[in-house]
């Protein structure tokens, strides 16, 4: 059996470790970034400002899911899925309405008085601080679980010779949700009247207006989509790890990086950007010594393999999205998918 022979040479253990630590982990965090970045990029395209509270909107969505979990704890057991996941559509709807409400209260008055984009950004930072304060006021600063006692977190192990490929239930749900969201968004933007109107406003707001497109409707739809996707991303992330109120700072930089890498105003670019940033992070902190060690017999003697060989120590993970961001801004400010830079 030549194939078995080949498999025997391959360091399966280490490769599976690589798959677990880089590919799957990158896909997971990349999907979360993508769900956030789509909203950021849509808001940027339509409203022309960087929406800083997006991370907090994700957290808020997850907390809505938590409250729903308290209210209807038994729902999940009835369906056989985690309760928070079953209730996620409601959390998405609530967060979408919250986003529209925030726009009404804070952004629209500024928009109507025609302030500069930079003032809109400041306003969004003000909103970010308010959301943070409220979230911590009501939820405390501790860590919570989005899994009810009745839910069990299924873990799937796929044996691949030696080590198992590990994937958990919330991770599968995250992938599924991301794919569904991407396809649905694609259909919406290319097929529906409102979706096309959104693209039109993003392309040329003045012409959209003289075509009779209601900018208010488009703006509202944008917030609904951004809020819903943010809630989905936040809830699924909280299901995968834990629910913390200070998600925002840690996640907003990679999300912006993803949106800018993908080209501002380009939803598909944001998805690709999210995955790119996610993979870059996991690749950068991966300990490459693990992959090098099996090659020990084939390497010359004088090369010593250090115990830890990562591009970036885990503590400095934050520099990865930052460097991607800076590199793109310097060399290709329109992003890899030709977004807008100005206006």
């Amino acid at each position: 059996m030549p194939e078995a022979g080949l498999l025997a040479i391959l360091p399966m253990n280490e490769l599976v470790f690589f798959l677990n630590k880089v590919v799957i982990a990158g896909l997971i965090i990349g999907s979360v970034y993508a769900l956030g970045a789509v909203g950021v990029t849509l808001i940027f395209g339509i409203l022309r400002f960087a929406h800083f509270p997006h991370g907090d909107m994700m957290t808020a969505g997850a907390f809505v899911a938590l409250v729903l979990l308290w209210m209807f704890p038994g729902v999940g057991a009835a369906v056989g899925l985690p309760t928070a996941f079953v209730l996620m559509p409601i959390a998405m709807a609530v967060t979408a309405l919250l986003a529209v409400g925030l726009d009404r209260m804070f952004y629209r008055p500024m928009r109507k008085s025609g302030v500069k984009p930079v003032v809109m950004v400041m306003t969004s930072i003000g909103v970010m601080l308010m959301m943070q304060g409220l979230l911590r006021l009501f939820a405390g600063t501790g860590t919570r679980q989005l899994y009810a006692d009745t839910d069990d977190k299924d873990i799937y192990r796929i044996p691949l010779g030696g080590r198992d490929l590990v994937i958990t239930e919330p991770q599968l749900m995250l992938f599924a949700t991301t794919i569904v969201a991407v396809v649905a968004l694609h259909m919406f933007l290319t097929r529906s009247r409102m979706g096309k109107a959104m693209r039109a406003v993003s392309d040329n707001p003045d012409l959209a207006r003289v075509s009779g497109i209601s900018i208010d409707h488009v703006v509202r739809t944008t917030w609904l989509i951004a809020g819903a996707l943010a809630a989905a991303g936040g809830t699924l992330l909280a299901l995968d790890v834990t629910l913390k109120p200070d998600l925002s700072y840690n996640i907003i930089l990679p999300i912006f990086a993803a949106a800018i890498v993908g080209g501002v105003g380009q939803p598909y670019g944001a998805i690709a950007g999210g995955l790119l940033v996610g993979f870059s992070e996991t690749l950068a902190v991966f300990n490459w010594s693990v992959l090098l060690r099996p090659m020990r017999p084939y390497l010359p003697e004088f090369i010593e393999i250090p115990a830890k060989l990562a591009f970036v120590p885990t503590e400095y993970k934050i520099v990865v999205p930052f460097f991607i961001l800076i590199a793109v801004l310097i060399w290709r400010p329109t992003g890899l998918f030709k977004g807008r830079v100005n206006n």
Binding site: T123, G126, L129, M130, Q132, G133
Partner: peptide
């Protein structure tokens, strides 16, 4: 944390 909220509110 209310103070963070107040900063944000003041900005807006």
């Amino acid at each position: 944390q209310m103070r963070v909220f107040v900063i944000g509110l003041t900005i807006t």
